[in-house]
Design a protein around this nucleic acid. Structure first.
Length: 409
DNA sequence: TCTGGGGTCCTAGGACCC
DNA sequence: TCTGGGGTCCTAGGACCC
């Protein structure tokens, strides 16, 4: 399992000294957490996923043996593994387990970049004197997480973020892989191009068409050729990554001074619809959700984007940028509804609609034009009342009048 | 009963300004 | 009358990540 080059006095301990970047990734996280408290599920294939029209969020290794993978349509997953038990995700539990795991990381080093609920980078260069080599720190973390949470994780250790990330994937499940600097190209070059960060299905196909199958092939392709094929930025990135070069450093946390760049929500209908009223009502619900999250984050934004996905899965977006930033539900909805209606759809069957607000800035920085019309102030105050009621009685308690009574199964 | 929902970044064309 | 670049903003689409 190692890509390291043995030398006379070689050891994992020693080899890891130049590998202070750890990438820790929980193994089949959602599935592992769901199975943990259900002894009856321990020896059966388990798929975590939404119901109707959903995708696989996670699958345990017994299900993976049948070819089930994350993000696969549930229909296909069930076909591949009919005897799998399908369970609904429990995000509250996932968040709690994740928070505890991240806390364990922070006891090892303050330099933790959280990527998602089940994944983080750690820079342990400042912890080596206190806790030992990166390799023994990784072992320590794995043992603690297993003891405290009864789930396993895998760790990749390297000198750079990108290589550590690939290493953890190759270490799965329940393993550690150290890739010392002198072994980086030996490790990377035989891998498929799809292993590189930024190479998904489409780019992998494109590279394969050019005869570039392995990371080594990419490494030995002239940069201009690469850039013509996949674009300027990605070409440069792949060129660097293929040689194990990655200047990225860890950013522990996005500060309050650096808010999200956009906030949005979308939803796939239970069944495709061409009913304008149904779609507009959904846009209102999504606008309320987005605006509520914006107010909670104390941001306002200028660009509203509507997304429409049709029955054949083609997807379009329409956006409008206004002079003034807003966090007001009615204003966001009005823009979204205008954009949607301007499409002039007649009988097109719609699968999904979404609303997103971009160009976010801290709310304090928004200078509302002098003429704070009575109407506008009214909406803003209505939103605040909704927020307060929602925080006391739950988000379901308060919603726009047009969402009441219109519900259908 | 094929294909979720939350995001980020890049590209490319056109408008507009200097 | 014809023709420059550079920079920024906006819009639309696409790819990718978890």
């Amino acid at each position: 399992m190692s890509a390291a080059l043995p030398s006379p006095d070689w050891s994992w301990e020693h080899a890891s000294r130049e590998c202070p970047i750890l990438h820790v990734d929980m193994d089949a996280f959602y599935a592992s957490v769901m199975v943990r408290d259900r002894p009856d599920l321990q020896q059966v294939p388990v798929i975590v996923g939404g119901g109707h029209r959903g995708v696989v969020l996670s699958a345990n290794y017994l299900a993976r043996e049948h070819g089930v993978r994350s993000a696969m349509p549930m229909t296909r997953a069930r076909r591949l593994c009919p005897r799998a038990v399908v369970v609904q995700p429990d995000y509250d539990t996932f968040s709690a387990v994740s928070a505890s795991v991240m806390e364990t990381f922070r006891q090892v080093t303050p330099v933790v970049e959280v990527i998602s609920l089940d994944e983080a980078f750690l820079d342990v260069s400042g912890s080596v004197r206190r806790l030992g080599s990166p390799y023994s720190i990784a072992e320590h973390l794995r043992a603690r997480i297993h003891d405290e949470q009864q789930i396993t994780c895998s760790v990749g250790a390297a000198a750079t973020v990108a290589t550590a990330k690939i290493a953890s994937r190759r270490a799965k499940p329940d393993g550690i892989l150290v890739v010392p600097p002198e072994a980086v190209t030996t490790f990377l070059h035989p891998l498929d191009v799809g292993e590189l960060w930024g190479v998904g299905e489409k780019t992998a196909q494109m590279l394969h068409r050019l005869g570039l199958m392995s990371v080594g092939d990419v490494a030995h392709t002239p940069l201009p050729t690469l850039q013509r094929a996949v674009g300027h930025a990605l070409g440069l990135q792949l060129h660097h990554l293929a040689w194990g070069q990655d200047r990225r450093t860890l950013t522990p946390r996005r500060g309050p001074d650096e808010p999200d760049k956009s906030i949005g929500a979308d939803e796939t209908f239970g069944r495709d619809t061409d009913d304008r009223e149904v779609i507009l009502r959904e846009l209102l619900r999504l606008s309320a959700k987005v605006a509520g999250r914006m107010r909670a984050a104390r941001v306002a934004g200028r660009t509203v984007t509507v997304k429409v996905r049709f029955a054949d899965f083609t997807t379009i977006t329409r956006s409008k940028t206004t002079a003034e930033a807003t966090d007001v539900t009615q204003e966001i909805y009005q823009t979204a509804a205008d954009l949607f209606l301007a499409l002039g759809l007649q009988r097109a069957r719609v699968r999904l609609v979404g609303v997103r607000v971009e160009g976010l800035m801290p709310r304090e920085r928004v200078q509302r034009q002098l003429v704070l019309g009575a109407r506008e102030r009214g909406w803003s105050e209505a939103d605040r009342a909704v927020d307060q009621a929602a925080s006391r009685f739950g988000a379901q308690a308060v919603r726009p009048a047009s969402l009441l009574g219109g519900g259908r199964p």
